[in-house]
Simulated assay, not measured.
Amino acid sequence: MNASALKAELFAYAREIGIDKIGVCSAEPFDELRVRLTEHRKKGYDSGFEEKDIEKRVDPSLTVPGAQSIIAIAVAYPSKMPYNPAQAPGAYRGVMARVSWGQDYHHVLKERLQALKDFLLERIPHAKAEIMVDTGVLSDRAVAERAGLGWIGKNTALITPEFGSWVYLGEMVTDVFLPRDEPMSDGCGECTRCLDACPTAALVQPRQLNARRCLAYLTLTRGSLEEKDREKIGARLYGCDTCQTVCPYNQRVNATHQEEFRPDPETSKPLLKPLLCMTKSEFREKYGASSASWRGKKPIQRNAIIALAHFKDTTAVPELAKLLYEDPRPVIRETAAWALHKIGGEEAERVLITAESKETDPTVKRQLQQYLEGSNKNCTGRS
Rank of each mutant, 00 (worst) to 15 (best):
residue 1 M to K: 06
residue 8 A to G: 05
residue 11 F to C: 00
residue 14 A to E: 13
residue 16 E to P: 01
residue 16 E to S: 07
residue 16 E to M: 08
residue 22 I to L: 10
residue 23 G to P: 12
residue 24 V to Q: 09
residue 26 S to L: 03
residue 27 A to R: 01
residue 28 E to S: 02
residue 31 D to G: 02
residue 33 L to V: 01
residue 34 R to G: 02
residue 37 L to P: 00
residue 37 L to G: 00
residue 38 T to W: 01
residue 39 E to I: 00
residue 42 K to T: 07
residue 50 E to V: 02
residue 52 K to G: 01
residue 55 E to W: 00
residue 56 K to N: 01
residue 63 T to N: 06
residue 65 P to N: 06
residue 66 G to Y: 03
residue 66 G to W: 12
residue 68 Q to S: 09
residue 68 Q to M: 06
residue 69 S to D: 07
residue 74 A to Y: 10
residue 76 A to I: 10
residue 81 M to G: 06
residue 82 P to H: 02
residue 85 P to N: 06
residue 88 A to G: 00
residue 90 G to M: 01
residue 95 V to R: 01
residue 100 S to A: 15
residue 101 W to R: 03
residue 102 G to H: 10
residue 103 Q to N: 09
residue 105 Y to P: 01
residue 109 L to A: 06
residue 115 A to F: 05
residue 121 L to W: 04
residue 124 I to F: 00
residue 130 E to V: 12
residue 133 V to K: 04
residue 136 G to F: 04
residue 140 D to L: 06
residue 142 A to I: 00
residue 146 R to F: 00
residue 148 G to D: 12
residue 148 G to C: 13
residue 158 L to Y: 04
residue 159 I to K: 05
residue 161 P to Q: 14
residue 161 P to R: 14
residue 162 E to D: 15
residue 165 S to F: 06
residue 168 Y to F: 15
residue 172 M to Q: 14
residue 173 V to W: 14
residue 174 T to A: 07
residue 179 P to A: 11
residue 183 P to T: 12
residue 183 P to M: 07
residue 189 G to Y: 08
residue 189 G to A: 12
residue 190 E to Q: 15
residue 191 C to H: 08
residue 193 R to A: 14
residue 194 C to S: 05
residue 196 D to M: 12
residue 197 A to I: 08
residue 197 A to D: 03
residue 200 T to N: 02
residue 202 A to M: 13
residue 202 A to Y: 10
residue 203 L to A: 05
residue 203 L to F: 00
residue 204 V to E: 05
residue 210 N to S: 08
residue 219 T to H: 04
residue 220 L to G: 04
residue 226 E to C: 05
residue 226 E to H: 11
residue 229 D to H: 07
residue 231 E to A: 15
residue 232 K to P: 00
residue 232 K to S: 01
residue 235 A to Y: 08
residue 236 R to F: 02
residue 239 G to D: 10
residue 240 C to P: 00
residue 243 C to F: 06
residue 245 T to V: 11
residue 245 T to S: 02
residue 246 V to C: 05
residue 247 C to T: 12
residue 250 N to D: 07
residue 256 T to C: 07
residue 256 T to S: 03
residue 260 E to H: 13
residue 260 E to T: 06
residue 261 F to T: 09
residue 261 F to Y: 10
residue 262 R to H: 06
residue 263 P to K: 13
residue 263 P to R: 10
residue 265 P to R: 11
residue 267 T to H: 05
residue 268 S to N: 07
residue 272 L to W: 05
residue 277 C to S: 14
residue 278 M to Y: 04
residue 283 F to L: 01
residue 284 R to E: 14
residue 288 G to C: 09
residue 293 S to C: 07
residue 297 K to T: 05
residue 298 K to F: 07
residue 299 P to T: 11
residue 304 A to N: 09
residue 305 I to G: 04
residue 306 I to E: 03
residue 310 H to S: 10
residue 311 F to C: 02
residue 311 F to I: 11
residue 313 D to N: 13
residue 314 T to R: 15
residue 319 E to G: 06
residue 320 L to T: 13
residue 320 L to Y: 09
residue 321 A to G: 14
residue 325 Y to T: 03
residue 325 Y to R: 07
residue 329 R to Q: 12
residue 332 I to L: 08
residue 335 T to W: 03
residue 335 T to D: 03
residue 337 A to S: 11
residue 342 K to I: 08
residue 344 G to Q: 10
residue 349 E to H: 14
residue 354 T to K: 15
residue 358 K to W: 12
residue 361 D to I: 08
residue 362 P to I: 08
residue 367 Q to V: 05
residue 370 Q to R: 15
residue 378 N to L: 13
